[in-house]
Every structure is written in structure tokens, then in C-alpha cells.
């Protein structure tokens, strides 16, 4: 006899309240990260010691701006998932754990938004 509500049965999440999304998102962002890391390393190598004008100029190329945006957004999501696991593994005090998990999310979102703002500003020239 199943002691589950129909909704609970459909969601299939059980007492952990989470399914395979975390694991799956970690893999999706890992795979996406491979070409994006290659792009990032090449971009940084090409623009080592560049002036501000040269960086801004590079962002006028939509492909570069979009790739850089994707790189940072993908990185932010991947690192948020990763550090979440680290926190859950090592921090067992309820209050500290949830405070750190919140900070983790905030940090990832701030990094992503700040970088996207910078890329957009340079790309569109606001």
C-alpha cells in the first residue's frame, strides 16, 4: 500500500524533497562548461594586458559577448550547485548550514548579474 498523496507520487521526490535535478544540472553545466572554458582561456590569452578600449571593442562582437555571457552564467549555476554539496557535506548545524546555502545562492546570482551587466554595457555601449 502506497502511503503517498497522488501529487507526491507523481513528483516522486520522497523524504529528501529533491530528485535528480541537482545531479542532472551539475552534468548539463559540466558538459556546457567544456567548450566555454576553452573559449574563456583563449579569450583571456588573446586579451592579456589589453587596454580597456580593446576589451570593450572585443565585446562589440556579438559572438564574443554572448559566449562570455554564457560562460559566466553557466559557471555561476555550476559553482552554486557544487558549493551547495560541499556545504551539505561538512556543515551540520542547522542555522549555519541554511545561512551558508543562502549566501551561496546570493553570491552566484550577484556574480552572474554583475558580469552580464558589464558585458551588456560594453557590448551595447550604454
Amino acid at each position: 500500500m502506497l502511503k503517498k498523496t497522488p501529487l507526491g507520487q507523481v513528483l516522486g521526490l520522497g523524504s529528501a524533497k529533491a530528485g535528480t535535478e541537482h545531479w542532472w544540472h551539475q552534468r548539463v553545466t559540466a558538459i556546457a562548461g567544456i567548450p566555454l572554458v576553452i573559449f574563456l582561456v583563449i579569450y583571456l590569452l588573446v586579451h592579456r594586458g589589453a587596454s580597456r578600449a580593446e576589451i570593450t571593442e572585443s565585446m562589440h562582437n556579438p559572438i564574443v559577448a554572448i559566449l562570455m555571457g554564457l560562460t559566466i552564467a553557466n559557471l555561476a549555476w555550476h559553482m552554486r550547485l557544487g558549493l551547495q554539496v560541499v556545504i551539505e557535506d561538512y556543515v551540520h548545524t542547522y542555522q549555519t548550514k541554511y545561512a551558508l546555502l543562502l549566501l551561496n545562492t546570493f553570491f552566484a546570482v550577484v556574480m552572474a548579474v554583475a558580469a552580464l551587466y558589464a558585458i551588456l554595457k560594453m557590448s551595447i555601449g550604454l
Binding site: 580597456r52 576589451i55 570593450t56 559566466i72 555561476a76 556574480m111 554583475a114 558589464a118
Partner: peptide, 13 residues
Amino acid sequence: GTLLLVWWLTAAA
């Protein structure tokens, strides 16, 4: 290290 990358990008902006 992401902080460094984002610092560099925002500085350029």
C-alpha cells in the same frame, strides 16, 4: 576565483 574574473570584467565596464 570567479570573483577575480567578474572584478576584471566589471572594471572594464
